[in-house]
Nucleic acid binder design. Structure first.
Lengths: 198, 198
DNA sequence: ACAAAAATATATCAAAATGATATATTAAGA
DNA sequence: TCTTAATATATCATTTTGATATATTTTTGT
């Protein structure tokens, strides 16, 4: 099976809701999506070009007064069809890259304090990210009953909260373990010193 | 700041423990690492070549009997230094790509049943992955006291378990929510049918 | 009122990562 | 004996990343 360009479908999905410029897409992704799928300009602009060439989006150039040129992209019926087709395809493997875990795996190379510091930093960041998501934590029950179609973005939000929470819980546990290791080390050092002094 | 090739350091880290062939590295990563950092042959072989050219690893070619050629790579003192240097660098942003969340975000495009099915599949997979990790769940307290340097791989394992657990918890919650939506839909349909019949 | 900073907007590109595939031998199982 | 799994290396087009360049407009602080 050939590799498929997923960015195409992400962008199709975004413009299927509302026409947008490359900049709009980037910003929207950053705010809504980035914790589970981020894209940069280096993907957005070439992909939009390709989608336009294939007739899946329609480009309209707006020049107002002296304002900078704005290219707005709208989904076409063919684009909507293509998106629908992708939606029915089976979900592929998810991918994560945690540099912190790589470094921690080789943590024996570093002083214990340094490893603790790295985990603490990670914990703080995840806490901040979680707080950010929690601001959008609406009353799901109300959504279920009144706007069921809006429940889906909420489900992704929920996943983010669960995920960040698990990072924080892990960090607490890991720090606890390393503090024990640290304490053992200190006691061993003291014993050594006492021996030398005697 | 220029982009840095992290694969170099991952591979340096691996061969710093034990000399290995490209195949060994791939296999080891698959078994130990892949849930937080996966690499393919397409990265391994060119990276090994680059590391050798820079004198960070030493390549020895072994030809035994009629066996296929085996290239084994060993870390050099310069490589060890380079690895140590990277270890002290600040940890960069972690990245995740959850295709399931993208599709779920646009879930209103699909029947509720389909979205539930996708989440159930995801839940099953995460459960299997968690069970796999739990097999290696040693007694941490013992490691802390007797082999503190071996505690680090255990910490990454712990993260995996936490992470998979959070996916399962989320899936259960999400399925519960969508089942409510489904029930509401069915009731609405029944009311419609009754109205038509009257 | 003025300067600085932030937001809006598009674009490019080298380097890195992905994922699929090709090839060939040896060991293990049916 | 035949087939499958494991060992082993290699390539490559496509995709993704991350950094940077450019320029205008709006907002903010002094």
């Amino acid at each position: 099976m050939a590799k498929i360009n997923k960015t195409r479908y992400i962008i199709l999905g975004i413009v299927s809701m509302k026409p947008a410029s490359g900049y709009d897409i980037k910003k929207w992704v950053e705010e809504t999506f980035s914790f589970f799928w981020d894209i940069g300009y280096g993907q957005i602009y070439p992909t939009l070009e390709g989608l336009e060439k294939d007739g899946l989006v329609f480009k309209s150039t707006q020049i107002e007064d002296g304002r900078p040129i704005r290219h707005e992209y709208e989904i076409t019926p063919a684009g909507r069809e293509e998106l629908q087709k992708w939606m029915t395809l089976p979900v592929e493997e998810e991918k994560c890259r945690y540099e912190i875990l790589v470094k921690l795996f080789f943590g024996y190379m570093m002083p214990v304090e340094e490893n603790i510091r790295i985990i603490e930093e990670f914990r703080d960041k995840k806490l901040r990210e979680m707080e950010l998501l929690k601001k959008f934590d609406y009353d799901i029950q109300e959504f279920i009953n009144t706007k069921p179609q809006h429940v889906y973005p909420l489900l992704t939000l929920l996943m983010g909260i669960h995920s960040f929470k698990s990072c924080i819980d892990w960090a607490d546990e890991a720090i606890g373990i390393l503090k024990q290791v640290q304490k053992n080390n200190e006691q061993a050092n003291n014993t050594d010193n006492n021996k030398q002094e005697e």
